[in-house]
Design a protein around this nucleic acid. Structure first.
Lengths: 146, 146
DNA sequence: TATTGTTATACTCTATAACTATA
DNA sequence: TATAGTTATAGAGTATAACAATA
């Protein structure tokens, strides 16, 4: 058997990609500063920044975690004063999560700190390499959302 | 200000890449089958497959976690019968972790199961898109190892 | 009856601090 | 005294099951 005129088997790419993704993601995560927000907490603030107020259920769907997990994360952010929970105007079952001013400021500061390390790594790369990663982002999003 | 003749600022790429990486990695992780190994457990088996017997300390270094965390993972694998802990031949302080036959078989089976989902996603992509991800793997490794 | 969110409970990963055994 | 590994303890994320409130 030969693989002439054929890409390497997808399962080989799959295995390498999966391991590389996992290790890169963890490495980046390790760069969070002391006393910084955890990954799930920061992600929630990012979504609120991007989409405006959301319910816990919507946040759980976006992050693909179960509602009880999101309850926990939102409560932690509320205790930190970074988000505010309020009643839904028309549906008494729902809760609306809104960024506070402190939350907005925290997003800016945390983003700066957490991206700093990765930005340095990217600056060590060539423009062509950065382009590969730029192209990969869309594909990674597709994987994440499927 | 214009960005003509200039890449998007690296910090913008950094933020998008970080989020996309994290979400893709988590999505893939969610695909582990029931009763399958956890990520850290599987990673240890992979390293042992690749490098042969290692000490807990070496495994902790490779995975960039603290020794107590690795002790726990190795013990879990030992209880599952997938690795064996034995004395170091010359240094009584050290421990040697070796794959058992069951561990070797488990690696093959777990790899197959965990890669299956991602392989499907890759097959939905074009050859050019797969090439982007193939190129990205090396860059992700560089990020992970820096 | 269905939906939204929470509480209760449990498991895993991770970390730091303190301890044991060996070099 | 330094190193390798473990134990003790704690914090965070995640999940499922059961419950309350509302639609």
């Amino acid at each position: 058997m030969s693989y002439a005129n054929q890409m390497p088997p997808n399962h080989a790419l799959s295995g390498e990609l999966r391991v590389a993704l996992g290790q890169a993601a963890r490495r980046i995560r390790q760069q969070r500063g002391e006393a910084g927000l955890t990954d799930p907490q920061y992600n929630v603030l990012l979504w609120l920044t991007k989409k405006g107020p959301l319910t816990p259920g919507q946040l759980a769907d976006i992050e693909r975690i179960q509602p009880p997990s999101m309850t926990r994360t939102v409560n932690a952010l509320a205790e930190l004063g970074l988000v505010q929970k309020s009643e839904h105007p028309t549906d008494g079952r729902q809760v609306v999560v809104t960024l506070t001013d402190a939350g907005v400021a925290e997003v800016a500061e945390t983003r700066r700190r957490r991206d700093a390390w990765l930005t340095e790594r990217l600056q060590e790369m060539t423009a062509a390499e950065r382009q590969v990663l730029t192209d990969a982002i869309e594909l990674l999003r597709r994987i994440a959302q499927s």
